[in-house]
Structure formats: structure tokens, C-alpha cells
Design a protein around this nucleic acid. Structure first.
Ligand SMILES: [Mn+2]
Ligand SMILES: [Mn+2]
Length: 885
DNA sequence: GAGTCCA
DNA sequence: TGGACTCAACGCTTG
DNA sequence: CAAGCG
């Protein structure tokens, strides 16, 4: 939208701002020195551009000084937030909220997240120049003292702005300081102070994508719109009504966050028994996933189904016990189910609801191939405007997954099922249906622990929460700790041991060690069980800042739950348990063959290898067994280099196509032949035998990387690795020429070198050394070589690891040569498609080989073919770094 | 892969 | 017993 | 400080 031409003079300071914007496209205000401000305004705008950030702006001398703060302000002095200074903005900008069009500079929604007045301590202009400004804010959210400290001054003076100057924004101590989650004010108070909207909502408003619910679909009558049998027949889909035992329901895959692409609808996740219903001319049958017949157990549901106005149908849904507050409770459902079948007591029948969410077959037509939303419309019509109680149509909503989930969780739901809007009904588990769980987190007092025989530190922490006067026990948490935490917390707890349980209701358990209730931790969980224990608890961290007495339950426990708990202890009621066991024990579906066989345990090289048929490399199909056999073959070749050398592993439990991770410490369960030791305070692992290597394979280690030194002299490197990492655009032959050049340079200073492939396009040039020099000199030497080459031929080499600068060049990575740094060992397999390996080769052959041809499977052939070990002299070469004067 | 909790 | 949950590195460089 | 890198 065009605005009237400015009359007022535009300050030079705003020139850059105006240059970047096209005011006929964006609704941002034009840069004009604005009136009606007292000269001390501040504003924080949340801006969902390419990257989410907060624009922190202080008014000074007629403009808004601006910083982009990626993480936004914090209320804790411990959180120093990077603030990149950006161009000055006109003062009118402080009220801007809306959408900057895509493609425009800084495109994306903006909200005014906070605003108010600010006041510098001392002379603001001098402080800015100095790079250290302290001030106080009086906004709606941010209050009190803050500082901006410059850490790097930008060279952005010229027309081509260089790197911008960088600052740190952080809270100074005063009464407004908060710590822990409370400090994350951007999370706790995400809404605009002007409109109350979130930045996402502003973004959605623009795109005109309105959230729609299925309820807004115009109601049609069955006669008018429901696809008729005749029409369906024409489509060739008419079919006989199948039996329930022939149908396996569609299942959802648990994921940790809503999908970001594709069209999805969201339904409530119910906590009950999944049930298929079959209606055939008034005759009803209800069946659960384990093929038990429940028709007689739920007569009310069966009766309601028989009243539906259809000749035949198969419906899918969930039978739930609905509590007074309207939630479905699996535990209550279990409780009321009669032992050994039979009908449910009448007074409990009325708590039961059958939520119906799908239709598979309708009046002689198999509708499973219809898109989900069509099936649901069909279902809605089928059930009628007022479905006979206790049938309920399970509605869905469309919209942004994050938003829907947040709202669902806030309203107390257990979670959501996301379903692909247009997908057909597919039996079994797939990614068309996703299970999204709400997670709750809360602080608890640690009131005790149990000891572990298997790991260091402790087995689990006993948690308590303040309720009225007393501390109430609320279960254990045993996961979420890393090694360090296990040791640290374990040591602290030992100092707090006491005989007296701090909780008023100590559980009767063996092996509990009580501690004084002083430590506070945060725990995430999915729900609180009926007797007050946490379900699926996981440790999130210690809360060092919080006194134990402040820890209270955020939401009151329903009184009923506590009463019931006492009931249970008194009567030891086990109602429902046998049934539950039975339900849970039956397999939910035929397992995939790969994991079904427990028989694929083999022994290779004297080491037990489980899941031997697991595919470790998708591309080639190489299995764990083949990997172990490979190591049996190359053990004698690899071991001289791997022996007593601190190593790091790349482990890929689900194969190399999935998530792999690094490991450099010993874990419980790793075999005895994997040794550990301490070097300079850090734990390292190493092996001395082929058995040790095979034990790594059993842990799904694919790659083995090693230090540049051995345990014999961990401070004195015994080789240098010059690692050549090409830009993806380059060919292997380019890397070969580089390697030869490195070799020649080394030759010239009298150092012999060897070369190996690395499984990809890269090469390693290895210079054996007598262990004589320290890490710093060795790394310094490697860097000198890298820098010299990069300097002489900047178009071919870089000595800087930034990928951006690598374009069309080779990164000469000298950083493999520091203490603790690792490089892949010769003969190590690589976790990449094809199961390639790192292979030593002769310099004279290097131009003729293709590194992709050396694989776990082809290794034997190549090894037979070669005349001699290309690295035969490496271990006997005695050479030292030259004196570099 | 293994340790942990809970139903 | 089985599902769910979690962990399994790290130091250096660069922006 | 935080992200990127290997
Ligand atoms: Mn911005
Ligand atoms: Mn490399």
C-alpha cells in the first residue's frame, strides 16, 4: 500500500532501513522521524522470519536502535543471549504488528511482544560507543536492569555491510530475576501485548488459512448426499461384509511432535479399548484387537449400534470409561470390567461411551479406499444428528498441528491422533496415523533413591511433592540421566542419607535409601496414575535454585484419587487385572520377520552376536553378521593400528540409514575386552584384541575412529592425519591430486607418508611419527601444512572448516590432530550407503582406484588380490617432526 | 543394547 | 511380560 | 554465546 510522500526530513540513520523496503508491498511503516514519543520507548517484537527471533529496540535520538536476538530475552542473569545489531528502525515501527510479505526483506509475521520505557544508567551514547550499556526497562513483561555488551565490533560502515556487530543481552541482578523455566518469559508469555495474538496466529491470519472443524461441514441428509449403494457399485467397490476376524485395525505410530508437512486432521486420543463393530441387519458384534468378543459385556453399546439406520456396516472406535470431568480413563475401564466376561454392572454401564472414528464398510460397500475425511463425513451422516447414546461421533479438527496440540494439552487431554486427511484405511501400523502425546513436567523433591547393581550412581530417584503440610510420595524416576548426572547426583545423595523417610506415606519397598528432602528436580511424565505415581517419568534436570519447601503440585490431585488409593491398600483389590494381562499379552499384530526371530543369535570369533540378521547397511543389505565376519577377516590388519589406541565409535542400532551416534565412553554391557582408562581426566576406551572389536560390533558399532596416539604414550602422537575433505561438487580425482601434492610437500621436508581411502571421496594422508612431540606441536605442524597450501592455491584449498567457503575446494582438515580428536581407522567400515571401508592403498595405485569399490563385502577379494600390505612400512618408519625455525 | 518404571 | 522412555561426544573454529 | 564441523 502506497503512503503519502513524506514531508519531514528522513534522518540519514534510516536510509538503510528505507533502502531495504518496498513500501508499496509491505505494510511496515516508512522511515520518518516520528513524533509523539517521549524519546525513551523500547519495544521487543517477535519476528517469525527465515529464522525466529526477537527484535530488541531502544529509542535514542529519534530512531530505534535495534538488535536481533535469536533466543529472545531471559529473566535469568545466567542466560547471555546473542544480540546481533541490525539497522536502525523508525520510531513508528514500534507499533508495527502484522505480516511482512514473503519475498520481502525479513518476510514473516511480527508481533509486539513487549513495550514500555527504558532508562540508561549513565550516558547512553558513550556507553554504546564503549560497547557496554546498562539500563532498566519498564515494560509489561520485561522489568528491571539489563545489559548489552559488545563482543565483536562489526565492520558494517561501508555501503556493503560487513559482519554486523555482536552483543550479548542479559539480565542484571535485581528483584525481577527469575531462574529455570520461569526465566523463559518468551515461552511463558508468548502473546502480543497489543492484540494478544501469538506470532503464529498472526502468520495464519495472513495466509487466510482458517482453521476449520468438521462440524462446520454443512450437515446433509443421508438420503441426499451419502453415496448410494448403486453409485458405489458403479465404482466397482461393492463387496460382501467381511468378518471382524479378517480385519486388523489401523494403528498409529508414536511421534514426538506434530507433522510439519502434508494435510492432517486431529482427533482426540482416547484411553480405552479399541473396538471394531460389525452390524448386519440389526445383528451386532463387537471385537477388540485381540479377537475377544465384547458384545455381551457392553449391551448398551450393542443396543445403540443396532438402532442405527443401516443395513450393514463395520465401524471402528474406542470404548471408554468417561469420568465425571469428561475424560476417558483406562484404569477405570479396567476396574469395572467383570472378571471372566459377563455383563458390566448397570450403574457402571452409564459411564461407558463408544467413540466412533471410522467406517470401513457401509451398506455393502467397502469404503476403505475413500479418503479419511470422506469416510468421516459418511460416518457422521450414518450416526445421525443425535447418535443413540452411548455412541459418540469422534470429531476432528484441521489446523496447525503445534497449535492444536498445545490447546489439547492445555485443556487436559492426554494426546491427539493425527491422521492424513486424504489417506485410505490401512490395516496395521503406519505413518498415516500418528500418536501425539501431551507431556507434563513438574518439579519434585528427591526424597530417596534405590541403588543399582548395573550402573554407577543409583537405580532411581524417589520423588515427593508438598501437599498441605506433608510431603507425599509420588513414584520413581529412573531414566533421563547421563553418566555424569548419575555420578554427580549419586554423590550428593550419599551426603544426605537419613533413616527417616521425609514422606508421610513411604512405600513399602526393599532397598530404599531415604535422604533429606533438599534436592529438587524437574521430571517430565505422561500422566499421574490413580495412586499418585508418575507414568513414563523421565528426569529433566536438577533445579539448583529452588528450595525444597516451595515444591507443590501444580494441579491439585482430585480428592477422589487419594481416597481410592487408601481403598486399594485396605482391600488389595485386583479387579480387572487378569483381563488386562490377557489383553496386553496378545500380540497386537504379526511382527515383522526381522525382529520376530529370537534365533538369530550367533557366535563369531568367540563373541555372542545377537540380531545377526539385522541389516546394518540398507543400500547393500550388509548385516550385523557380515560385519562381524568382516572384522574376523581384517582383525589381523586392523589390530596393529587399533590396538591400545583410544577410540570413538559410530553406532547405528537401526542401521546406517537411521540415526547413528558417536560414543567414546564405556557403557554397562560393553564386553570385558573393551577397556577403559583415564587420560587427563577424561575417560577413554580402547581394545587390545579382536574379541574387543567384535564386542563393539555386538553394540552395533559400524565405524571405529582412533586418536593420534596410543595408551603407551597418550601425550605423544604417533601419527599425523592430513584429512582431505572435498566439497561435494568435486571428483575423487581432484582429491587424489591434492593428496599427491601433500605427499610431495612432506617428501620435501623428509617425511614419508601413507594414504588411505575413507569410504567416500575423501583421503587421509598419514605420517607416522616416533612418539616424541606433544599435541600442540603436531597439530601446529599439520596446520602449517594446511595453511601454506591454502595460501598458495586459494582456489583449490581451504584450511577453514566452514562449508560456505569450501565451494569447489578441498578442506585440508588439520584438526584431526588435537588431543581427543579422532580420525577413522584403516579398515574401519563406514556407516554410509554401500558399507564402504577405509582402505590403505599404494601411492602408485592411487590414481587407479575407486574408493567406492572397497566395501565390507568386497574386502576379501581385494585383500587376496593385492601383492603386499601398502602400509607395511608404516609401523616401522622412524621419523620426527622437522625443526621449524 | 541396556537400564529403568509402571500396568 | 512388554511398552515407553532415555542415553550413548566433544573440542575447536567461526560468525 | 551459539552454530557448524568432523
Ligand atoms: Mn527482524
Ligand atoms: Mn574426512
Amino acid at each position: 500500500m502506497a503512503t503519502a510522500a513524506p514531508r519531514r526530513r528522513t534522518p540519514a540513520a534510516l536510509k538503510r532501513y528505507n533502502e531495504k523496503r518496498r513500501f508499496d508491498v509491505t505494510s511496515e511503516p516508512r522511515g520518518e522521524a516520528a513524533a509523539r514519543s517521549q524519546g525513551d520507548a523500547f519495544v521487543v517484537q517477535q519476528h517469525d522470519a527465515t529464522r525466529m527471533h526477537y527484535d530488541f529496540r531502544l529509542e535514542l535520538d529519534g530512531v530505534l536502535l535495534s538488535w536481533a536476538v535469536p533466543k529472545g530475552p531471559s529473566l535469568s542473569p545466567d542466560d547471555k543471549r546473542l544480540a546481533v545489531q541490525t539497522e536502525d528502525h523508525p520510531i513508528a515501527y514500534r507499533n508495527f504488528e502484522g505480516n511482512i510479505p514473503h519475498g520481502e526483506y525479513g518476510g514473516g509475521p511480527v508481533i509486539v511482544w513487549d513495550r514500555g520505557r527504558w532508562k540508561p544508567e549513565g550516558d547512553a551514547r558513550a556507553a554504546l560507543k564503549k560497547g557496554h550499556l546498562t539500563f532498566s526497562l519498564d515494560g509489561e513483561k520485561l522489568k528491571g536492569r539489563y545489559s548489552l555488551v559488545r563482543t565483536r565490533t562489526g565492520s558494517g560502515a561501508g555501503p556493503k555491510q560487513g559482519p554486523k556487530s555482536q552483543w550479548l543481552l542479559f539480565k542484571r541482578s535485581d528483584e525481577y530475576v527469575r531462574s529455570g523455566p520461569a526465566a523463559e518469559i518468551t515461552q511463558r508469555e508468548p502473546n502480543s501485548v497489543i492484540s494478544g495474538r501469538t506470532v503464529k496466529q498472526v502468520g495464519e491470519a495472513l495466509s487466510g488459512k482458517r482453521r476449520t472443524t468438521a462440524a462446520s461441514v454443512p450437515t446433509r441428509t443421508a438420503k441426499a448426499k451419502a453415496p448410494t449403494k448403486a453409485a458405489a457399485k458403479q465404482a466397482g467397490k461393492a463387496s460382501k461384509l467381511p468378518s471382524l476376524s479378517s480385519i486388523e485395525p489401523q494403528l498409529a505410530t508414536l511421534v514426538d511432535r506434530p507433522p510439519s508437512t502434508g494435510r492432517w486432521v486431529y482427533e482426540i486420543k482416547y484411553d480405552g479399548y479399541r473396538m471394531l463393530a460389525r452390524l448386519d441387519r440389526g445383528k451386532v458384534q463387537l471385537r477388540s484387537r485381540n479377537q475377544l468378543d465384547w458384545t455381551r459385556t457392553f449391551p448398551g453399546i450393542a443396543a445403540a449400534l443396532s438402532k442405527l439406520d443401516v443395513a450393514s456396516a463395520i465401524l471402528d472406535g474406542e470404548v471408554c470409561y468417561v469420568t465425571a470431568d469428561g475424560r476417558s480413563s483406562f484404569q477405570d475401564l479396567q476396574r469395572v470390567l467383570p472378571r471372566g466376561g459377563g455383563e458390566i454392572r448397570a450403574d457402571q454401564q452409564k459411564q461407558l461411551v463408544f467413540y466412533v472414528f471410522d467406517v470401513l464398510h457401509h451398506d455393502g460397500v467397502d469404503v476403505r479406499d475413500e479418503p479419511l475425511v470422506d469416510r468421516k463425513l459418511r460416518l457422521k451422516i450414518l450416526l445421525g444428528k443425535k447418535p443413540p447414546w452411548p455412541l459418540v461421533y469422534s470429531d476432528h479438527i484441521e489446523g496447525d498441528g503445534d497449535t492444536v496440540l498445545t490447546q489439547a494439552c492445555a485443556s487436559g487431554l492426554e494426546g491427539l491422533i493425527a491422521k492424513r486427511r486424504d489417506a485410505a484405511y490401512h490395516s496395521g501400523r503406519s505413518a498415516d496415523w500418528l500418536k501425539l502425546k501431551c507431556h507434563r513436567r513438574q518439579e519434585f523433591v528427591i526424597v530417596g533413591y534405590t541403588a543399582s547393581q548395573a550402573r554407577t550412581g543409583f537405580r532411581s530417584l524417589l520423588l515427593g511433592v508438598r501437599e498441605a503440610k506433608a510431603l507425599r510420595y509420588c513414584g520413581k524416576v529412573g531414566t533421563g540421566f547421563d553418566q555424569a548426572l548419575l555420578e554427580d547426583i549419586g554423590a550428593r545423595l550419599q551426603k544426605l542419607v537419613t533413616d527417616e523417610p521425609a514422606v508421610s506415606d513411604p512405600p513399602r519397598m526393599r532397598g530404599v535409601i531415604w535422604v533429606k528432602p533438599q534436592l529438587v528436580c524437574e521430571v517430565e511424565y505422561t500422566e499421574v496414575t490413580r495412586d499418585g505415581a508418575l507414568r513414563h517419568p523421565s528426569f529433566q534436570g536438577l533445579r539448583e535454585d529452588k528450595p525444597a519447601r516451595q515444591v507443590k503440585r501444580e494441579k491439585a490431585v482430585p480428592v477422589a484419587a487419594i481416597e481410592k488409593e487408601e481403598d486399594m491398600h485396605a482391600t488389595a483389590s485386583e479387579a480387572g487385572k487378569p483381563r488386562r494381562t490377557k489383553v496386553e499379552a496378545s500380540p497386537d499384530r504379526p511382527r515383522k520377520q526381522s525382529s520376530a526371530r529370537s534365533g538369530d543369535v550367533v557366535e563369531i570369533g568367540g563373541v555372542r552376536i545377537s540380531h545377526a540378521d539385522r541389516v546394518m547397511d540398507e543400500a547393500s543389505g550388509v548385516t550385523k553378521r557380515e560385519l562381524a565376519e568382516y572384522h574376523e577377516l581384517v582383525g589381523p590388519l586392523l589390530l596393529p593400528y587399533a590396538r591400545k589406541r583410544p577410540i570413538a565409535l559410530v553406532r547405528c542400532p537401526q542401521g546406517d540409514a537411521q540415526q547413528c551416534f558417536f560414543q567414546k565412553h564405556k557403557l554397562p554391557g560393553l564386553g570385558d575386552e573393551v577397556k577403559k582408562a583415564r587420560i587427563a581426566g577424561n575417560e577413554v576406551i580402547y581394545v587390545e584384541s579382536q574379541r574387543g572389536i567384535l564386542e563393539l560390533v555386538q553394540f552395533n558399532a559400524i565405524e571405529i575412529h582412533g586418536w593420534g596416539a596410543t595408551m603407551d604414550a597418550p601425550d605423544k602422537p604417533d601419527w599425523i592425519v592430513i584429512d582431505l575433505d572435498p566439497d561435494t561438487a568435486l571428483e575423487f580425482s581432484d582429491v587424489v591430486e591434492a593428496a599427491l601434492e601433500v605427499r610431495d610437500n612432506l617428501d620435501r621436508i623428509g617425511l614419508a607418508s601413507f594414504v588411505k581411502t575413507t569410504g567416500g571421496k575423501g583421503l587421509h594422508v598419514v605420517v607416522p611419527l616416533e612418539p616424541h612431540a606433544g599435541w600442540d606441536s603436531v597439530k601446529g605442524f599439520a596446520q602449517a601444512i594446511a595453511s601454506a597450501m591454502a595460501e598458495q592455491q586459494p582456489d583449490r584449498y581451504v584450511a577453514n572448516m566452514s562449508k560456505a567457503k569450501r565451494k569447489g575446494r578441498i578442506f585440508i582438515d588439520y584438526l584431526r590432530n588435537g588431543q581427543g580428536a579422532t580420525a577413522v581407522l584403516p579398515y574401519s567400515p563406514r556407516a554410509r550407503p554401500g558399507a564402504t571401508i577405509a582402505m590403505p592403498v599404494e601411492w602408485k595405485d592411487i590414481r587407479r582406484i575407486d574408493p567406492k569399490e572397497f566395501t565390507v563385502r568386497s574386502a576379501e577379494r581385494w585383500l587376496k588380490k593385492r601383492k603386499r600390505d601398502p602400509w607395511a612400512e608404516l609401523l616401522t618408519t622412524r621419523q620426527r617432526l622437522p625443526d621449524l625455525d
